[in-house]
């Protein structure tokens, strides 16, 4: 049996029908020593205050829906142990996102940025089924695998100072996602993608804060993707100086 202690959880509350601005509400609850932050929120919702709204699903750090600010830092609450904190912990909605209600944020505008980098395999000509599967060596898989581990939890958007200031910025996860396809040996769409990477709000808007990689719960290291993306799109940019756009 794990030990039970008391902790105070200070939660941001916001009801768009009633509140002008968010307020906080404190709950003193019994917690078990092996609980994650999400367990405390679920306890509050189930046992204390059913009006609390927060988002979660898998409870095992794969669905990416439980991101929140815990004591001011973006965290996956199903992975973040309560024992990391003192007797009082503050839980707020993810920074840099519009709040829908309580701890739930609006993601639509950000999902649009993912589409912009064309996160699918682009081929000049599709292979016919008879031609068989496209083979990849373990090395070719390793070239993009890391960038494919993102669970879209958006913690990096919440940590990034540029996302907070520049409304055009694609953001760390979207750039890492584009980079994942640029690094895939089956893909032939990097020139198209790099046009997006070179636009306003593309890779060069990054200010090298590296916060995205600091907070990433899956070790995707989006900051490295952004830096590599700069180098790759630089080549396309230099080519564009010599050759007119669109020519091969």
């Amino acid at each position: 049996m794990s030990e039970v202690t008391k902790k105070t959880v200070v939660v941001t509350r916001f009801d768009p029908d009633q509140d002008e601005v968010p307020k906080t509400q404190s709950y003193e609850i019994p917690v078990q020593s092996d609980w994650k932050v999400l367990d405390a929120l679920n306890y509050i919702k189930d046992e204390v205050d059913p009006t609390l709204s927060h988002r979660w699903s898998c409870r095992m750090a794969v669905c990416g829906s439980c991101g929140m600010m815990v004591n001011g830092e973006p965290k996956l609450t199903c992975k973040d142990a309560l024992s990391n904190y003192g007797n009082t912990i503050e839980v707020e909605p993810l920074a840099n996102f519009p709040v829908v209600r309580d701890l739930v944020v609006e993601l639509d505008g950000f999902m649009e940025r993912f589409k912009k980098v064309k996160p699918w395999i682009i081929r000049a000509k599709e292979l016919a089924v008879e031609e068989g599967a496209t083979r990849q060596s373990p090395q070719e898989l390793a070239d993009f695998k890391q960038w494919s581990m993102c669970i879209n939890c958006m913690l990096c958007y919440s940590a990034c100072p540029v996302v907070g200031n520049d409304p055009h910025f694609l953001g760390p996860a979207a750039i890492a996602l584009g980079h994942r396809y640029n690094m895939d040996s089956r893909d032939e769409g990097s020139a198209e993608r790099n046009e997006v990477m070179l636009e306003e709000g593309g890779v060069f808007a990054c200010s090298y804060a590296n916060e995205c990689s600091e907070v990433c719960p899956k070790d995707v290291d989006p900051a490295a993707a952004v830096q590599q993306g700069k180098a790759l799109s630089l080549l396309d940019w230099a080519k564009g100086l010599v050759l007119p756009r669109g020519s091969e």
Partner: peptide, 13 residues
Amino acid sequence: NHLRHFSIDLGGY
């Protein structure tokens, strides 16, 4: 370049 991005990070978009 660093000063420029520093300025943006401090809310200077």
